[in-house]
Design a protein around this nucleic acid. Structure first.
Lengths: 207, 207
DNA sequence: GTCTATATATAGATAGAC
DNA sequence: GTCTATCTATATATAGAC
């Protein structure tokens, strides 16, 4: 969206800046991360940061943009494999749990916007909204595939919302208790029960 | 913990400072809220803020402390009323949903610490940990009462964790979509299913 | 594209009169 | 306890040589 990601000398600097900025912002938050901190951490002078991104907010937007791209690109296809519901549900939960585990910094970064949303640029907010929408749609599609909900979009919607909120809540828990993982076991039971509650055929009781 | 809350001239100022500081910090986050902003918003000079709280961090701790006290005091007794499981579960969910709705700023404030945790004082972190622990214990006790889990503490634990994570996730959702409420309907279905999954007697199928 | 040097504003915090 | 005035550090951002 901003520029091609892989080129000569300047592009490497660009990436280095985004790497360290992302790491620092994920750890300290946007407001608490200063340009000088980023400069010191990545070795390039402040003026270079401004040459590349124009402003602190520009860096922020670029960081979010990249985190979003990375995270969305890593999502598996919404066509969850598996011949029956149980296999697909298992595959879905494994994928979600893994992605959640692998992309901790991105998740943190994107969640963190909440605390600065009021001050953030329209561009930054839009970036995160887009990310959120894309994630939601993916979850909806994947769950629709898992439970066969092509005719019941509102159910797919509820299940997706449920799943994402549980994931967000777990991310929050991780702020206090590093190492908190997405509990896919209870989530599986809950999703099955919710589907069944809406009259979706769920071969075999949850227990 | 810091001083008596209701006295003459100075105490009113103290409260005014905490009110506006809490509001600003809940909206912008800790780092993005400056002493001068608070001073301007509440009318008292910066030196008064320092006289009362010593430092910006002191204000933060006091704000968290008060938010915690308020929130915990508002929690209903863990002895959830109701003659059968369904009545108690309903009462529990209503209470949680209401508290969640009523105390939005406190929740936001306490969640927000996550983003500054790395830099925050030990005192601030301890404050939030204590809050979190108290909330968790309350949920555990209440759910234990709802489902009759005195002999199954690990199940009560799982249900409480599940509930709190869902609540946290919903708080996050509210950052993007104001007006997002705790969906007690799906939560009820999920909790019943989880209890049943662990062999707890849950008279009547969830649907 | 990267560097040194710097402009300008505001941050957190204090001094001391009242 | 509250005020005005101020110290010092650091923030974002720019200028201009290389």
């Amino acid at each position: 969206m901003t520029e091609a990601p892989a080129r000569g000398r300047g592009a490497r600097s660009r990436d280095a800046i985004l790497d360290t900025a992302g790491e620092l912002m994920a750890r300290h938050g946007y407001a608490a991360t200063s340009i000088s901190m980023i400069s010191a951490a990545c070795g390039l002078p402040v003026s270079s940061l401004y040459w590349h991104f124009g402003s602190k907010d520009g860096i922020y937007v670029a960081v979010l943009e990249r985190a979003q791209t990375t995270l969305l690109a890593a999502l598996p296809p919404a066509e969850v494999p598996g011949r029956d519901l149980d296999e697909r549900l298992e595959a879905f939960l494994t994928e979600v749990g893994d992605a959640f585990q692998r992309h901790q910094p991105s998740v943190r970064l994107l969640l963190g916007l909440g605390m600065v949303q009021q001050d953030a640029t329209a561009a930054a907010v839009a970036e995160v909204r887009h990310y959120r929408d894309a994630l939601m749609q993916w979850a909806r599609d994947a769950l629709s595939c898992v439970f066969g909900l092509r005719e019941r979009p509102e159910v797919a919607d509820e299940l997706a919302r449920f799943t994402l909120r549980m994931a967000s809540g777990t991310a929050v828990a991780r702020w206090f208790d590093a190492g908190a993982a997405l509990e896919t076991g209870p989530l599986r039971v809950a999703l099955r029960a919710l589907a069944a509650h809406h009259g979706v055929a769920v071969r075999g009781a949850p227990e």
